[in-house]
């Protein structure tokens, strides 16, 4: 009980910090945190598959990137897309792609599942890379950010970086709440059961394929939401955003933060992007540009975390709270 209350307090403090940030931070940091929150939504969508349902997907960027392309198509040249139309459209297209891929890949499991998700995502990658669609390998610009106009009235403008920040923050909270609700529901109990022991779920009478498929589609649509805002913020879409690098990167975020907790996915997204910046900013020492080789440091750090913290960075928090509690309990006795 005490543990969960502490976790809730920490969570609330983090949320408060995020709400207050724009009053204290410069534009650069507001945009950086916007990007981190977008990646956190992406990571949570993947955590639903990897951490809760036990489906390790190495092709999740396909859904993320496709939604970005949908936005690019919806905003040709300098014309802005309407947010209320293009966002649901982008999520629906990503969800449909997830449905099409899911029907095929969910018949496999384990290492085969990893391989076929990767294969399908690479197919999507090459569709955009090797054809003239949307600029081919060069990518395409999204010059104008989506407009949030409802019959002429515009409650906020995504061109304003602070507005953009708060829109993404609200969505982060909404997605978090949605997933929490989902995980506590009958559906949520089933998918967690599938991760632990799918064969037993089947023998209890559950048609596990259906539940996995719904989960896969939902996860794809949420990844699409993240991809949509990533494209809107960056103002540019290229095949890289749906390549396996991106898929690997988001999977790393989930693993780094701690799988199957949602909190871990958010923490992992924030931590990885901050670390990236931190490592890149390292100085030249004795003629070696350490910052340039940041990927080596990042790789080392992730290996370190995986080896020492089986529950990711979140496990560090758990460890700390247990250590803090020990003396208190000794006092009680």
């Amino acid at each position: 009980m005490r543990h969960s209350r502490l976790a809730a307090a920490v969570l609330f403090a983090c949320l408060l910090a995020l709400v207050l940030l724009p009053w204290f931070a410069e534009k650069y940091y507001i945009q950086l945190f916007t990007k981190m929150m977008i990646m956190a939504i992406f990571a949570m969508s993947l955590d639903l598959l990897v951490g809760y349902t036990g489906l390790v997907s190495l092709g999740h960027a396909a859904f993320f990137g496709l939604a970005g392309y949908v936005l690019a198509f919806a905003a040709p040249q300098y014309q802005a897309a309407n947010l209320w139309l293009s966002l649901p459209l982008a999520m629906a297209v990503s969800g449909l792609l997830a449905l099409a891929i899911g029907v095929l890949v969910l018949r496999t499991s384990g290492i085969y599942f990893i391989m076929v998700t990767l294969a399908f995502a690479q197919m999507v990658f090459f569709v955009f890379h090797d054809t003239k669609i949307a600029g081919g390998a060069d990518g395409i610009y999204v010059y104008a950010k989506p407009v949030a106009a409802i019959a002429g009235w515009e409650p906020f403008s995504l061109e304003n970086h602070t507005h953009f920040y708060f829109v993404v923050l609200v969505l982060l909270v909404l997605v978090y709440a949605l997933l929490r609700m989902l995980l506590a529901s009958l559906f949520g109990r089933v998918i967690v059961g599938i991760r632990v022991n799918e064969q037993r779920m089947r023998s209890l009478g559950y048609r596990t394929f259906r539940y996995k498929l719904v989960c896969f589609v939902l996860s794809g649509a949420l990844a699409g939401m993240a991809g949509y805002f990533a494209a809107a913020q960056f103002g540019f879409v290229s095949p890289d955003i749906l390549g396996w690098h991106q898929s690997g990167s988001v999977l790393m975020m989930v693993i780094l933060g701690g799988m199957g907790t949602l909190n871990g996915a958010i923490l992992g997204a924030f931590a990885m992007m901050l670390l990236e910046l931190g490592f890149q900013g390292l100085p030249v020492v004795g003629g070696v540009d350490i910052g340039k080789h940041w990927q080596l440091l990042m790789g080392g750090f992730i290996v370190f975390v995986v080896l020492l913290l089986p529950h990711g960075l979140l496990g560090l928090g758990r460890l700390a709270s247990r250590l803090l509690r020990k003396p208190a309990e000794a006092g009680d006795g």
Binding site: A184, L186, F187, R189, V190, Y211
Partner: peptide
């Protein structure tokens, strides 16, 4: 069990 809102 395709019920997504009410807690189990």
């Amino acid at each position: 069990s395709m019920r997504f809102t009410r807690p189990a």
